[in-house]
């Protein structure tokens, strides 16, 4: 019962790989790892004025020790959520990350939920065999939307909505940033456009996935059996096609979670939504490396988490997975 041992091994391997990759990038890519710790400006300043202090700092942070010791220290730090110090903000990276993560989840969670629901529904609608009017109109439309990156879609929606109607703001999170008071309605108003963009783009994507899953399911023998029983088309669709499409759909969603989240990051930048995406953007501009690698770490771990969740979901849906009879 549950996820197979091979899968668990693979996930552990993934986590180890992500952590190691993060460490290796800091250690081996061009540039002194010390820059990562003290910040670019301070580093250049020290290098010009007082080069000997750099050696002291290096010793203080343990950069002169052998690589495996540094690796173990880094791993231990990550386990204790010590992700480094952001010189741009003057605060620990983990604090900033968790604050920003909240806002990203506020955007990403509802968008994922909405697009999963719409994607399932529209995918079933478009995937039915035979003469299919929704398919003829919606599939080309959704393919076009899918081919347009989410942040480009944001440009278009801004052009249409924000400039022509005053109600929806151009960006930001609240209208009253100065006073510091945040009202839920205000946040919702600011959330509306980025949420729409993200939900629309993801819906297009998931509908295309669901459509091909449904079309595939309709060629299965058990669907022909179901039709031969004289069941109503709705029953065939829900009980036989949709039920079987659910697990592959959720798995596909989890595998593409990184892609969807990547789209969300860029949409945040366009709307100056203060989540992880804007954080990364600001970090890129300020060359704030600890923030960047912290963001990467969080996102990579959440992709792994999404896949674990999809596997758990499969064990609920599919008795064969529960019995270890097939790999999902």
């Amino acid at each position: 019962m549950g996820i197979s041992r091979g899968k668990i091994f693979r996930y552990l391997l993934s986590i180890l790989f992500v952590l190691s990759l993060n460490f290796l990038i800091i250690q081996f890519l061009p540039g002194d790892p010390l820059v990562h710790l003290v910040g670019e400006e301070a580093y250049i300043h020290l290098q010009a004025r007082n080069p000997s202090s750099l050696a002291e700092l290096r010793a203080k942070y343990g950069l002169d020790r052998p690589i495996h010791e540094r690796y173990l220290t880094a791993m231990a730090d990550i386990l204790r959520f010590r992700l480094g110090w952001s010189y741009q903000y003057g605060r620990p990276v983990s604090h900033i990350l968790f604050y920003r993560l909240k806002w990203t989840l506020l955007l990403l969670g509802p968008a994922l939920f909405l697009s999963a629901v719409f994607g399932l529904f529209l995918g079933c609608l478009c995937g039915r065999p035979g003469k299919n009017l929704p398919d003829r109109f919606m599939t080309p439309l959704f393919l076009t939307i899918y081919a347009t990156p989410a942040y480009c879609l944001a440009f278009l929606l801004l052009l249409v909505f924000a400039f022509s109607c005053d109600f929806l703001p151009l960006g930001g999170m609240t209208g009253s940033a100065q006073t510091g008071r945040v009202s839920a309605g205000d946040v919702l108003r600011h959330l509306a456009l980025p949420l729409c963009v993200l939900a629309l783009h993801t819906t297009a994507y998931l509908t295309i996935i669901m459509r091909s899953t449904v079309r595939q399911a309709f060629t299965e023998d058990y669907v022909i059996t179901a039709v031969s029983k004289g069941l109503k088309p709705r029953v065939v669709m829900l009980r036989h096609v949709l039920l079987n499409a659910l697990s592959p759909f959720v798995t596909a969603m989890a595998i593409n979670f990184g892609f969807i989240a990547g789209g969300a990051l860029l949409v945040e930048v366009v709307f100056s939504w203060q989540g992880m995406g804007s954080l990364m953007y600001e970090a890129v501009l300020a060359r704030d490396y600890p923030i960047l690698s912290g963001c990467f770490l969080i996102l990579a771990l959440s992709v792994i988490g999404a896949n674990v969740m999809a596997d758990i979901f499969s064990t609920f849906i599919d008795p064969r997975v529960r019995d270890d009879a097939v790999a999902p």
Partner: peptide, 23 residues
């Protein structure tokens, strides 16, 4: 195993990270 591990890497954040480092 290696393929699956790479498949789980979020593309855009990794590219941003590497691009920022490599300049």
């Amino acid at each position: 195993h290696m393929t699956d591990v790479f498949l789980l890497l979020p593309g855009l954040p990794l590219i941003i990270l590497l691009a920022a480092y490599l300049n």
